[in-house]
Amino acid sequence: MAGAAVLGRLTWRAADVVGVATETPRVKTIAFDVDGWPGHLPGQHVDVRLTAEDGYQAQRSYSIASAPDGARIELTVERLDDGEVSPYLTDELRPGDEIELRGPVGGYFVWEPSRGGPLLLVAGGSGVVPLMAMVRRRAALGSDVDTRLLFSSRAWDDVIYRDELEGLNGDGLRVHHALTRSQPPGWSGYARRVDAEMLAEVGPAPSERPQIYVCGPTPFVEAVAEALVELGHEPLRIKTERFGPTGG
């Protein structure tokens, strides 16, 4: 079984905010020190719980962005303007605050370098978050597993982890960007939505039997997964995680 050690009950834990970093105008990364954190696998998520003064509570799930690192975890959160929880996390939280979370959750959409490759990661917008945990884990362990990341964003300024990904490109990791709405002058990357032709160019070919992880908004994931099946990738090797228009 793929799951991490979550055999006991996943209890709510106090999580201290130790850092808040701006990724893009709409996206922030919040770092927490979590009391008693049991560790996680790249791709897993946590449940966050907020409590108002009068006892009202709201819960949401967020993917873990960071590679395993002791009691420290990072969540990268996109602000949804009509969201209930995400604007609080991105706008209100500051170092010294404390919230509650429990996890890690999920044993399917996970990858460790020991599982080998080749690996194809396809991200739409903030769908990059669980895939980044895999990329970071790979780098932290010095793995040279053949990894392709195809990352679709609206514009260059919307690219989450842009500088870090530039730095990680190489050593068997190839990062390809697709910018769907606007491109900077002289842009030589993809300037359209992800399609079958793009996926064939980025590879690996179906004959190499890559492990494939796709994460993004539902229409993105539907289109990418369908194109991958069309290209001849085995459906059971395509793992998807989708988020709808709600959730924030």
């Binding site: 709510w12 719980r49 409590t51 609080y88 404390e98 919230i99």
Partner: peptide, 26 residues
């Protein structure tokens, strides 16, 4: 552990969501 109060969090309750039809945490 009693819940930790989230400083400044008010939440957005929905008037059209009868509590007896919305399970805990939903």
């Amino acid at each position: 552990m009693p819940p930790i109060i989230s400083r400044g969090f008010k939440g957005r309750r929905r008037d059209d969501a009868p509590p007896d039809r919305v399970p805990p945490g939903q």
